[in-house]
Amino acid sequence: MEEKKLNLTLKIWRQAAPDAAGGFQEYKVYVSPDSSFLEMLDELNNELESQNLDPIAFESDCREGICGTCGLVINGHPHGPIPKIATCQLHMRHFKDGDTIWVEPFRAKAFPVIKDLMVDRSAFDRIMEAGGFISVNTGSVPDGNAIPIPKDIASEAMDSASCIGCGACVAACKNASAMLFVSAKVSQFALLPQGQPERYRRVQAMVKKMDELGFGACSNTYACEAECPKGISIKNIARMNREFIKAKVKTEEIDV
């Protein structure tokens, strides 16, 4: 059966360089509803290149929603209007013939635009370097069940760890706050025995780094949770607040 293709108007943010002025440019595309959003951009780029025009710069890697590389703000939603998926999992069947689609990069001071729709998210790496790890001695593989962990705690830690670090929470937040990301990372360690030795130092160091990098504070609008492709819960933010306050009150170390 012949598929019904869609006529769409794309308004895409084009910006030649980090400091260059950007603006929206209009493109008309004729696209299969089975095509993914990124495939549509690939096709458009092929066409631009065949006309010797500069292709639209955007990021992607795994294209199956687990790497966190892709991330576009589509009609005002990070990763598009369908909940709990990444941009790469968004298909054109969710749009109607004749639609106009606005595509913007993530906007945050801490995520400067590199080109077009690509932003520099290395601020997240700086936060992880500040404390998003556990220090372990190298050696042979530890015994499987040496550290017992209750199933529900393990599940909760896994839920937190399912954060792919895409930055949609920052993009969605009216304050460009990174609290959902940071709290997910704090939580995945705070919940497990392996995370205990550095528990309080970690939360303080990561929050401090997050503040230094120019992310905003949390207004508890919960937009982050609504837009997160992995459905990370705002309970993580509550946990981080708890951990942070506890760390400040309980621990003796003062310069973290």
Partner: peptide
Amino acid sequence: ARPINYKI
């Protein structure tokens, strides 16, 4: 923290 606002 967000110097440039979204269009949409």
